[in-house]
Amino acid sequence: MATLKVNGKTVTVDVDDSTPLLWVLREQLGLTGTKYGCGIAECGACTVHVDGQAIRSCVYPVGALSGDEEITTIEGLSKDGSHPVQQAWVELDVPQCGYCQPGMIMAVAGLLNNKPDATDEDIDREITNICRCGTFARVRKGIHLAKTKKA
């Protein structure tokens, strides 16, 4: 049994403590926006926020959560797709297949939480998500555009 606070709601799930947060979100809570890509913290498809910080949920056992942390998934990033990163993504048509994008967007939102003026160097260092469709050029443009937007 684990208790978690996800997108502002407290929920209790009946799973083994070792179950990664990713699979609790996807399979117990039906929050399927967060994706599986590797399971070993390499690709970032599973990125969500824990207290505003981007983490890779595929290697984050639910047992490590106290229940007080605020977990935010792509579904909870904004009510209506109006988070600055989402706005920028729509404006520039960033996604291709889109599969990596929830993780990419959460990683970028996490970066901008910490560094609202993120530079290209910050982006290079901190955005390490894999996108096999190769949306990186627009992701970079999108980050700079998101910096200029308000929620």
Partner: peptide, 26 residues
Amino acid sequence: KRLDTADKVTGKQVYTTDFKIDGMLN
């Protein structure tokens, strides 16, 4: 603009792996 962008930025876009059918096993 693409016709299929909006859902891809909110997590609403459904891929096969996101489906759940009553009684479904994995």
